[in-house]
Write a protein that binds this DNA or RNA. Structure first.
Lengths: 348, 348
DNA sequence: TTGTACGCGTTATCAG
DNA sequence: CTGATAACGCGTACAA
């Protein structure tokens, strides 16, 4: 294994001091042209580049942002990571990834690790806010003493940091309103959890919307489940098999597109024709939505833009004193075929 | 912003030297119990942890591996990254991500950046080997002088590094044989490219298999295309509309599952019934394969296990002298519904 | 058992 | 314009 040339090697070989080498590298104008040329030549010959670690030690920064999320294999977080990566890259920063898995909480070890690495900032995405709010804010507060902190969180939580908020209200309102317009009254929600301590509180928001629109919120229409396809299959089966078909809902809103995938599969297996017999709306507007059968209508939370904002604010906060504020990114409904809207279909 | 306590702070406050603090942190047994206790107490009080940057500078290493791949939003690479992450994590290493986008080549800048960051190792995944082999090996060779290098590559390329090879042969053979068994003779390949300089040479391998099995390799059955769903839609439309329906293939093998998604959508739009009118086989065995309609039969290259092996070997090579060798991970065919095999269906 | 002193590679400051 | 030199925080011989 070679040893990479150091600034000393360059300085010696060019017959100058290390200070001058730095000046040349940094394109400091106060260097005689002849000197610059000679030094640059040696630099090129060795393909010299300043050592990252040394720079970091000296500057006390890492030129890296931490992104903390549950799992990157989940497409939603994958998109956040990707967007964060490019936004950071654009600013000469790298991303250090931390996956917490199911463990939603911010552990003390994680906090210490982040401080130890001298992260220039941290972005928390995912479900940390489901944990005890007190603990959470304590952790964020401590972290905030060392580096800027940003979170991508539902609109109704208040955290002591840069909050990029997803539009929980419209995320629930849009699907319900769309279905209502199409004539649906019995609308079910599958996946996630109905409890207000839920990951993203999507279930609770959904219930609220039903009430606002004066629609029945039959408890039989709300099955707590997980966040993946198998959960969707099981949940819809459990719901429908417990109900006389005359009481079946006519539309299903799912926690996310994965759950919707499972629901669609199960409904087809039961012989239903979609969207005629059942309307479905997912959430996240994943890449495969246009390729399900029928193509899945879905809510887009615009995670990429939230991640971009988060990184941008983090980088900004690095310079100035850190602030605590919120930015809301509105949700959008992407209408496809799974509710029959494209047929001008209207349920009685 | 707080300043994190340094080893000096701890030493002063505990009334010992920095060396002793290090000993306590490192659990060096040659420390008097009383001293250890006192120092540990101060350490705990400040939640002191040695600075990563300082350690890196001192040790000349970064405790980090680089993963270079085209895009993480592609599920295949996403899985590689995820697996690499956990394997590295298990060994106290972090992952530094580099996305190259379409730019397949290993640029000189990338090489320098990797060296500059003192990466403990690099894993290249993706399509770098499509580039000129000479350039590639030159870059790998240079990199190899500074750190262990591993690649996840097709089985038929020879690179001067740790080669985790995907099973290109079976990746082509398995689908063709499966279709052949089911009675298919006119088999098409869509997506990627037929040229041997192709990204993964999957097209070329496919042609070879057709010949081996004495099946017709009508050029009309091979449409170069991209790697995504839109490409699949366009490619199949182009192929079929240029052909009298009597000459249509009876089965389609696609470059990957995304292309298959597009193909399925387009075929349905044309009114075909699947798998009756057309058999389809994808590649990568993505999570959604079980949820397409019909469920997609697909080849699994086992990217997770390849990534694990790669990281493991990288970590090993860090200690010993670096070697150059290859490990092959065999491909598997996961049979679902898209070829009708579950019906005992047999085409004449 | 403990402390001193130096090296790791850069950058910044301050003389010259 | 250029060169010493002092941090930056840690590990580690070597000495005590």
């Amino acid at each position: 294994m070679n040893r990479k040339a150091t600034i000393y090697d360059i300085a010696r070989e060019a017959g100058v001091s290390t200070a001058t080498v730095t000046r040349v590298v940094r394109k400091d104008p106060h260097v005689k042209e002849a000197t610059r040329l000679k030094v640059q030549q040696v630099i090129d010959a060795h393909a010299y580049t300043p050592s990252m670690s040394a720079q970091n030690l000296e500057s006390g920064r890492s030129r890296a942002l931490a992104v903390v999320l549950p799992v990157i294999s989940n497409l939603y977080f994958n998109r956040i990571l990707d967007a964060a990566y490019w936004e950071a890259d654009k600013n000469g920063c790298s991303i250090r990834l931390f996956q917490t898995m199911e463990n939603q909480a911010i552990s003390a070890e994680l906090v210490n690790e982040l401080i130890r690495c001298r992260m220039d900032g941290v972005l928390f995405a995912g479900s940390i806010w489901s944990a005890d709010r007190g603990d959470l804010n304590t952790a964020l507060e401590k972290l905030g003493k060392y580096m800027p902190v940003a979170t991508i969180c539902p609109q109704d939580v208040s955290l002591e940091c840069i909050c990029i908020q997803s539009d929980l209200v419209n995320c629930s309102r849009l699907p319900v309103r769309h279905l209502h317009t199409l004539g649906h009254r019995r609308i079910a929600f599958l996946g996630g959890s109905m409890h207000s301590k839920d990951t993203s509180r999507r279930g609770a928001g959904f219930l609220e919307q039903l009430r606002v629109m004066d629609l029945p919120d039959d408890p039989a229409y709300h099955v707590d489940a997980g966040y993946d396809m198998e959960s969707g299959e099981r949940a819809v089966l459990r719901m429908l098999s417990g109900l006389d078909s005359s009481r079946w809902p006519t539309a299903i809103v799912t926690f996310n597109d994965l759950v919707a995938l499972g629901v669609i599969k199960q409904l087809k297996k039961m012989g239903l024709s979609l969207p005629r017999d059942m309307a479905i709306i997912g959430c996240d507007n994943q890449f495969f939505c246009a390729y399900t059968d029928p193509a899945l209508t879905s809510v887009d939370l615009h995670p990429e833009e939230m991640a971009q904002s988060a990184v941008r604010e983090l980088l900004l906060a690095r310079e100035s004193s850190s602030r605590s504020f919120a930015i809301v990114r509105e949700a959008t409904l992407v209408v496809r075929e799974s509710c029959g809207a494209h047929f001008g279909f209207r349920r009685l």
